[in-house]
């Protein structure tokens, strides 16, 4: 894993990313650039590779081709330059890219506070007391100060997802990846999670958001990427892409959402 002195303004740079699951090609030559502080929404039908793309960006899946840069961290999966990834360097790469999942993935044997503290203690190696203070501040930021001592089973879906966001933020990542984080929530709980994400975007966090919330994508994202069958079909400024899609398949996909749009 090399470190470069990249002074370009872009925070995330993905080049010709490819991913096979056995014989199945799930991502094909995906190129994506996200400016520092940019918010990109990824939309597309089920099975188009959106989750796989996000999971590749923080190396939860190992790409089979291409190059990924997040901030100063570069991983190259091409030909001779292909690096052997070891557990330690992969972990360092992941710590710099926060990820929030559709299914929360909170640690069920830990309280909300312990969930947020876990990375602070085991990865950032902060002393217990400092970690606790930082974790409490993060819980406050997502509006859950009063839930610090509560276990995930006793939290609502919206609260769980906000704890998960706080837990990811605790690593002070340069980018945040969100994979359909509101899809498992009751409709009345979606708003509180989107509000936290809006706030993060305002604070200048670089974000990639896989979502079916077209209104959110329209309002918060700078750019929208439409994926189908493992390729990026169309990409552009959020409002342009939604109001005036160029590709037939984008139009067809968006037609399912017409009534949900502003």
């Amino acid at each position: 894993m090399a470190t470069t002195n990249n002074t370009a303004a872009s925070m995330i740079e993905i080049r010709e990313l490819g991913k096979f699951f056995g014989e199945l090609e799930v991502l094909r030559k995906v190129d994506l650039t996200v400016e520092s502080g940019g918010v990109v929404a990824i939309i597309g039908p089920s099975g188009s590779g959106k989750s796989t793309l996000l999971r590749c960006i923080n190396l939860l899946e190992t790409p089979t081709a291409g190059r990924i840069r997040v901030g100063d961290h570069v991983v190259d999966f091409n030909g001779p330059k292909r690096q052997r990834l070891n557990d330690k360097s992969v972990a360092a790469f992941r710590a710099n890219t926060g990820m929030v999942f559709q299914g929360f993935n909170l640690f069920l044997h830990m309280t909300a506070l312990q969930n947020v503290m876990e990375g602070l203690v085991t990865v950032r190696r902060l002393p217990h007391q400092t970690a606790e203070q930082e974790a409490l501040a993060l819980l406050a930021k997502v509006g859950l100060s009063d839930k610090a001592a509560v276990y995930p089973n006793q939290l609502s879906g919206g609260q769980k997802q906000r704890v998960a966001i706080a837990r990811a933020l605790a690593m002070k990542p340069q980018v945040m990846l969100f994979d359909e984080v509101t899809s498992a929530l009751d409709p009345e709980l979606v708003g509180e999670v989107l509000a936290v994400m809006r706030q993060l975007a305002r604070e200048g966090m670089t974000m990639i958001v896989v979502t079916h919330e077209m209104a959110f994508a329209y309002q918060v994202a700078d750019r929208i990427v439409f994926m189908r069958d493992g390729v990026i079909v169309e990409e552009g400024p959020a409002k342009t892409l939604i109001d005036n899609p160029q590709q037939e398949s984008t139009r067809a996909f968006l037609s399912h959402f017409r009534n949900g749009l502003p």
Partner: peptide
């Protein structure tokens, strides 16, 4: 998901 959550934090 428990593995994913932990690995995404950068845990070894």
């Amino acid at each position: 998901g428990q593995w994913d959550g932990a690995r995404a934090l950068g845990m070894r």
